[in-house]
Design a protein around this nucleic acid. Structure first.
Lengths: 75, 75
DNA sequence: ACTTGATGTTAAGTATATATAACAATGGGT
DNA sequence: ACCCATTGTTATATATACTTAACATCAAGT
């Protein structure tokens, strides 16, 4: 896990009619607890899950999740 | 898992000096068996893993993994 | 003050991504 | 014909994403 994962889920939810965690969960087939945990960065979602969340907000995946490498060592 | 996940790992490996599965594995901290399985689509990686693989090839994540929703119902 | 909806959080269980070890098959050198 | 590196594959084990259920807090109505 050489890096940090950020996300804009909370922001995107509010930008989409104050969508609730529960509703987002329903839309992607996850529980609201799981959404809460992902949103809080408690663990990193599966790639499929990430794509589904991005699809709900109709934005590219990188607009929902940002990856920051720990220490750049190449190039 | 409402959708299908494709990837271009094999292509990208050969485009990057015929990089071996083992070498890619080392670079992202996975075993060659895990790389082989992801490449073969046997299971979907973690978002962190996906970002790390994309970083090795220095391309955006969507250039490595493509998500195809099963049935579009929202518009 | 009371309800209700939304979120935070936690414990215990299930599903699945990943590791480890082993063996087979192939292709390229030599 | 023999190495040797690469990949395919499979069984068992471990880590972790995700579920379920439960309880707590807090803000908004009423």
């Amino acid at each position: 896990m050489t890096g940090v994962l950020h996300n804009q889920i909370r922001l995107l939810r509010f930008m989409h009619g104050e969508m609730t965690q529960a509703e987002l969960g329903e839309r992607v087939g996850l529980t609201r607890q799981t959404i809460a945990a992902i949103e809080a960065g408690k663990y990193a979602p599966t790639l499929s899950t990430a794509f589904q969340i991005a699809a709900v907000f109709q934005v590219p995946l990188e607009q929902v999740f940002q990856w920051q490498p720990a220490a750049a060592q190449d190039n």
